[in-house]
C-alpha cells in the first residue's frame, strides 16, 4: 500500500468505516472533528474523499432525492473492498508504529 497516505485521507477512511451508509460531506466532517478534535473544512474532506475514490478505496453514490435539498440527491461515499483492506493495513501499521511507546505526563519544571 501507499506508505505515505496523508493523515486527512486516513481520517476520512476511518470516518467512512464508522459512518457506513450515512457518510457524506457534512457527516464525514463531523466524524473527523469529533474523533480528532480538529476541524477540517468541508472542501478538505471532499478533496480527501475524492482522492480515495480515485484510488479505488471509496466510491461515491447518490441518495434518493431529498426534500430538504430541493429534491436533489446527496453525494454519499462508502468504502470499497480495497478500502476496507487498506484500512486494516493502516491500522496494523499504526499499531506497529506505536508499539512500546508509553506516554508519561511531562515532568513539571521549576
Amino acid at each position: 500500500m501507499n506508505p505515505g497516505r496523508p493523515l486527512l485521507e486516513l481520517q476520512a477512511l476511518i470516518a467512512l468505516a464508522s459512518l457506513g451508509d450515512e457518510a457524506y460531506g457534512v457527516t464525514v466532517q463531523n466524524e473527523i472533528c469529533s474523533r480528532t478534535g480538529r476541524a477540517a473544512s468541508v472542501a478538505a474532506c471532499y478533496a480527501a474523499l475524492e482522492r480515495l475514490a480515485r484510488d479505488g478505496l471509496a466510491e461515491a453514490w447518490l441518495s434518493a432525492p431529498r426534500p430538504e435539498r430541493g429534491g436533489r440527491s446527496r453525494r454519499h461515499y462508502r468504502l470499497t473492498r480495497a478500502g476496507r483492506e487498506a484500512l486494516r493495513q493502516e491500522r496494523e501499521a499504526a499499531q506497529r508504529l506505536w508499539r512500546g511507546i508509553g506516554l508519561r505526563a511531562p515532568e513539571r519544571s521549576r
Binding site: Y24, G25, V26, V42, A43, Y46, E50, A60, E68, R69, R72, R74, R75
Partner: peptide, 20 residues
Amino acid sequence: IAPPEIRQAMLDDLDELSNA
C-alpha cells in the same frame, strides 16, 4: 472553482451546515 462532480454536493453541504 469547485470541480463539477462535487460542485452541487459541496454547495448543498454548506447550506446544510449554515442551516444547522
